[in-house]
């Protein structure tokens, strides 16, 4: 069998070129956030725990009214409560701390990079939205979210993922998210992310004794659209501090970038092995024939 060296290199060359081009396609980042992309600053020192945000969220999203008087400690969102305010008692003087929790709308969301059908998408405007008409229910977004925000309707025969969408529809109409529009204490500030980071730094600078000198969400998992200020260590009010600074979308990039290389380099390599094996076998049978 005559597999010419030229043919082989032609195949390998084409394969290599495709792999390089393909690699760039697969590994490209998902969404470049627009300048002025929406964000929210949560100043936990200003939150009075009135939970008007919970009620407004429930109303806008057509969800049942919030629970009456929840116990202290971390509360989590569920399929009918997209935002919850937890009450913590971290300091010896017993003063309660309130922390609102919802989807953080990561800049490089793990959930969106995990979704095989683009049912979850990071929009350039800021919100991480959910297209229910695409979702097949694999629940990989739930695995991929370090904040455990996407929640699944396990009780339904036709289930969907439920989570805060940052009131993307209201934002499109020029309105602030429901929670921010009703917050009476000034704990929630809605605006462009760059401005809010400036604002947060200014508050720390002006009141260095009051705040922990860190804007939670500026760099966590590659940056969040929801930023937090606190006067006690963040892990004492239920915010994870072990997440690192890399966006989750990066975690699988190397693996995906290898795909085109495997697709294009494996076949010629395997075909070469096949050719060698075949030739060896033919040579073997010729020898046998000679002996006979």
């Amino acid at each position: 069998m005559e597999l010419s060296r030229r043919t082989f290199f032609k195949v390998a060359g084409v394969a290599g070129a495709t792999a390089v081009a393909g690699g760039r396609l697969e590994a490209s980042p998902q969404v470049v956030p627009a300048a002025g992309a929406a964000a929210m600053l949560v100043d936990t020192t200003r939150c009075a725990g009135c939970r008007a945000c919970e009620a407004a969220c429930a109303e806008v999203n057509g969800l049942p009214a919030p629970v009456a008087s929840p116990a202290a400690g971390t509360r989590v969102t569920d399929t009918s409560h997209f935002t919850v305010v937890s009450r913590y008692l971290p300091s010896p003087d017993g003063a309660p701390h309130f922390v609102k929790r919802q989807c953080n709308h990561c800049l490089e969301p793990g959930c969106a990079s995990a979704c095989p059908v683009k049912a979850i998408e990071k929009t350039p405007e800021g919100p991480v939205v959910y297209h229910r008409d695409r979702c097949m229910g694999c629940r990989y977004c739930m695995m991929a979210c370090p904040f455990e925000i996407p929640k699944y309707e396990y009780e339904k025969a036709v289930p969907y993922v439920r989570k805060c969408e940052f009131c993307a529809e209201r934002q499109a109409r020029g309105l602030a998210p429901a929670c921010a529009s009703v917050c009476p204490s000034g704990a929630l500030t809605f605006g462009p992310r760059e401005d809010l980071i400036e604002e947060a730094r200014t508050r720390i600078y002006q009141h260095p004794d009051r705040y922990v000198h860190h804007v939670y969400g500026e760099h966590e998992v590659g940056g969040l659209s929801w930023l937090y200020l606190s006067d006690v260590l963040f892990d004492r009010i239920g915010l994870q501090t072990d997440l690192g600074k890399h966006g989750f979308a990066e975690l699988t990039q190397a693996s995906l970038a290898a795909v085109p290389f495997v697709i294009t380099l494996w076949p010629p390599f395997l075909m070469a092995l096949y050719t060698f094996a075949k030739r060896r076998e033919e040579a073997g049978s010729v020898e046998e024939a000679d002996h006979e």
Partner: peptide
Amino acid sequence: YSAGPTSVM
């Protein structure tokens, strides 16, 4: 219907 090429899945 809706390709999600950023996903390993």
